[in-house]
């Protein structure tokens, strides 16, 4: 028998209404309020405890509330943690998201909650956990608990959870390929979408344009003759033995190579391992991608102050945005530590 623990606020925990919203966390053995219905809907799982906390207490004393609840959970058997459903109660949705996130991080168990789309908790927490799309009033309790339990049962049994639309949770910014159950080929979907678009009828794209993640252009360096410059590239220029084993495509690795005493990169000593372009020119003269030669000359001429002792390399082709962001976050501390004022980022 698996074990579940349920979190509810003061109202659904049957302590009281708004006047009890300042109530500190308490834990009870057994099931109170929605926990009773979870006990019916969860398969082969016992709801062992119900945690109750006032919404205002969680909102105003968040750290204390979270620490208290984590303390209460310490040492308890728990295969899943459920919070809510929170409906359209703004503070309750934030409380459910906050405690679910903390429990997931501390105990590594799956967490599930439910909120109405009009609440602040959705945007704050939808990328962190399964948040079912809930009703706006408490009379939706039965169906919201059922929807949460449906996902929870799959997690408890180790079965794959379906896509956001099918299961009814808020999309978490994760896109995967799936086989359509009826096998409808792309051509049929294409003609259907085309006719609807041509005829001015509503249609549904299979790739909703995500909100664009634009990086603002940094202000110009005012005093270039005294600035320290670093050289970075996604063109795969590495020492010929590729010591960091950077992949030729879909890279997850990067490397940095000392050029303090190098006047120019030589073919035969450096090469490109990038698989997305013809490597001949870069292998013969790696400076075409990482222009160490020109930068050393410009430095001597006083165009800029100094060159950071290392250049940094990864491969851009097929490399995902998430990996690129992670690698940048790993590289930045080296640049900051050396007081780099600006970087030249060479793409290919």
């Amino acid at each position: 028998m698996k074990k579940a623990i349920v979190y509810v606020n003061q109202f659904f925990g049957q302590i009281g209404g708004e006047e009890k919203a300042g109530a500190a966390p308490e834990i009870h053995e057994g099931q109170i309020g929605p926990a009773m219905q979870f006990a019916k809907e969860l398969e082969d799982t016992e709801v062992t405890h119900t945690i109750i906390c006032g919404d205002n207490y969680m909102g105003s004393n968040t750290d204390e509330a979270v620490q208290t609840i984590l303390g209460m959970l310490e040492g308890k058997e728990m295969d899943i943690f459920l919070a809510g459903p929170a409906f359209q109660a703004g503070r309750y949705t934030v409380a459910c998201g906050t405690i679910c996130k903390a429990v997931k991080e501390k105990f590594g168990v799956p967490v599930v909650t439910s909120m109405n789309e009009e609440t602040p908790g959705v945007d704050m927490f939808k990328k962190e956990m399964y948040i079912l799309k809930g009703g706006n009033i408490a009379s939706k309790m039965r169906q919201d608990v059922k929807a949460m339990a449906n996902v929870a049962n799959k997690l408890l049994k180790g079965e794959p959870v379906g896509d956001a639309e099918t299961e009814g949770y808020f999309a978490r910014g994760i896109r995967h390929q799936v086989w359509l159950e009826d096998g409808t080929p792309a051509t049929v979907r294409m003609i259907d979408m085309l006719l609807k678009k041509l005829n001015g009828e509503p249609f549904k794209t299979e790739l909703p344009m995500p909100k664009l993640d634009r990086v603002p252009i940094a202000p110009a360096i005012k005093d270039l003759p005294h600035a320290k410059i670093a050289l970075l590239n996604t063109g795969g220029i590495v020492p010929v033995d590729n010591p960091d084993h950077i992949q030729s495509a879909s890279a997850t690795r990067w490397g940095r190579y000392n050029i303090a005493d190098t006047e120019a990169l030589k073919g035969g000593e450096y090469k490109t391992i990038h698989a997305g372009f013809d490597p001949a020119a870069a292998d013969a003269n790696p400076n075409v991608i990482t222009p160490v030669d020109a930068l050393k000359v410009l430095q001597k001429e006083g165009v800029f102050g100094s060159l950071h002792d290392y250049f940094y390399t990864t491969v851009g082709t097929g490399t995902t945005e998430a990996e690129a962001r992670r690698m940048a976050k790993e590289i930045i501390p080296y640049l900051k530590e050396d007081g780099v004022d600006g970087v030249i980022m060479v793409s290919t």
Partner: peptide, 14 residues
């Protein structure tokens, strides 16, 4: 990926 038109696959949000 059969972008030529056969693809029985699509992409879904999770």
């Amino acid at each position: 990926d059969q972008v030529i038109g056969w693809s029985p696959k699509t992409m879904k949000e999770f």
